[in-house]
């Protein structure tokens, strides 16, 4: 099996198992305050790190390129409460345009 398939299947089954576990587990397990706090904080920290790495990292080095302009456009549109698809498409469009001009 290729590494990509291994990751797809492992993470896919794992994420489904996490959903089943939540519905099947006794309420007290996840109602512990520390667990509830971590569950709320995890997506915030992970998504913020993914935004940063996806925009400023190139492999294992930092790089400033057209992606930053794309993210800037996304920030602007999110502040204007634009829908998800418009935000994502505009970010791609801005980065593509800058690269075409360069």
């Amino acid at each position: 099996m290729t590494p990509a398939w291994t990751a797809v299947l492992l993470a896919g089954v794992g994420c489904l198992a996490l959903k089943v576990a939540g519905l099947a587990m006794p309420a007290r397990v996840l109602e512990r305050p520390a667990v509830a706090r971590m569950t709320m904080l995890l997506p915030v920290a992970l998504l913020a790190a993914l935004v940063a790495v996806q925009t400023l990292a190139d492999g294992t080095r930092l790089a400033l390129d057209a992606r930053v302009a794309g993210l800037g456009a996304a920030v602007l549109l999110l502040r204007l409460r634009a829908p998800f698809l418009l935000v994502v498409a505009t970010a791609a469009g801005v980065a593509a345009l800058l690269r075409a001009l360069a």
Binding site: G14, L18, A21, G22, L23, M25, A27, L42
Partner: peptide, 28 residues
């Protein structure tokens, strides 16, 4: 981005943990 299978899987699973909490609320 060149991440390994464990890194990619681990990140996806950590993000999926919130669905467990949702499931807990939804069960009742």
């Amino acid at each position: 981005g060149g991440g390994s299978v464990p890194a990619a899987t681990g990140t996806a699973l950590l993000l999926g943990v919130r669905n467990s909490l949702y499931g807990l609320r939804l069960a009742s």
